[in-house]
Amino acid sequence: MKNIVYISTAVKLMHENQLLDILHNARLHNAALNISGVLLYSEGTFIQVLEGKDSVIDALYSRIQADQRHKNVIKLIDEPIAEKSFSQWLMGFTVTDSAKTEKLVGYLKSISDLDLNDGKGSAVAAIKTFIENNQLAVNS
């Protein structure tokens, strides 16, 4: 099992409905392949954690790299893991504008829903850094 964490830049700023389409499709795909993770978006920048079977994650990452909706895909982490940090999320998702986050009923109403406080590992550290750099508070 492994995780990959990457960042990328949207080709153009995305609207909520576009982000929700991405989320919906990711959740369907991830459920079928036992992939978990989280996707954060802030002002045109994505960070995503993908966790699952090595070959499945590698194939998905190749697909993501070819996606024309974003550019400058940079892999930050690619490492084996003993257990998933985001196992409860087929794809946890939020935008880092709290006003917009509140509108996404049924998705992450708060970044604190990710429960990063007890998480360990490089992927959790990368997500925490992204949140901090985008000035989104993580509630304890």
Score class of each variant (00 low, 15 high):
1 M>S: 11
1 M>G: 11
2 K>E: 11
2 K>A: 08
3 N>G: 00
3 N>S: 01
7 I>F: 00
8 S>G: 04
8 S>I: 03
8 S>F: 03
9 T>K: 15
9 T>A: 08
11 V>K: 11
12 K>G: 01
13 L>F: 13
13 L>D: 08
13 L>G: 09
13 L>Q: 14
16 E>R: 13
20 L>N: 03
21 D>G: 05
21 D>Y: 02
21 D>R: 02
22 I>F: 11
23 L>I: 15
24 H>P: 04
24 H>D: 14
26 A>T: 12
27 R>D: 04
27 R>P: 13
27 R>Q: 09
28 L>P: 00
28 L>F: 03
30 N>D: 11
30 N>E: 07
31 A>Q: 12
31 A>W: 01
33 L>Y: 11
34 N>W: 00
37 G>K: 10
37 G>H: 07
38 V>K: 01
38 V>S: 02
39 L>G: 03
39 L>K: 03
39 L>H: 08
39 L>N: 05
41 Y>H: 02
41 Y>V: 01
42 S>C: 13
43 E>K: 14
44 G>L: 10
47 I>T: 00
48 Q>M: 08
49 V>W: 05
50 L>H: 08
51 E>N: 02
51 E>M: 05
52 G>L: 05
53 K>H: 10
54 D>M: 04
54 D>R: 09
55 S>I: 10
57 I>E: 07
58 D>T: 04
61 Y>G: 03
62 S>I: 10
62 S>H: 12
63 R>S: 15
63 R>E: 10
64 I>G: 01
67 D>T: 14
67 D>Y: 07
67 D>N: 15
69 R>F: 12
69 R>P: 13
73 V>M: 06
73 V>G: 02
73 V>C: 12
76 L>H: 11
76 L>C: 03
78 D>E: 04
78 D>N: 09
82 A>T: 07
83 E>I: 09
84 K>M: 06
85 S>D: 07
85 S>M: 07
88 Q>S: 15
91 M>L: 13
92 G>Q: 12
92 G>M: 11
94 T>Q: 05
94 T>A: 15
95 V>A: 06
96 T>I: 13
96 T>E: 15
97 D>V: 10
97 D>W: 06
97 D>F: 07
100 K>C: 13
100 K>I: 15
100 K>E: 14
101 T>G: 06
102 E>V: 14
104 L>W: 05
104 L>D: 03
106 G>T: 04
107 Y>V: 04
109 K>Y: 03
114 L>R: 04
114 L>H: 04
115 D>Y: 12
117 N>L: 05
119 G>F: 12
119 G>N: 12
120 K>N: 14
121 G>M: 08
121 G>S: 13
122 S>F: 09
123 A>E: 02
125 A>Q: 09
125 A>E: 06
127 I>Y: 05
127 I>T: 07
128 K>P: 00
128 K>L: 07
128 K>H: 06
129 T>V: 08
129 T>F: 05
129 T>I: 06
132 E>F: 05
132 E>V: 02
138 V>R: 04
139 N>K: 12
139 N>G: 14
140 S>P: 08
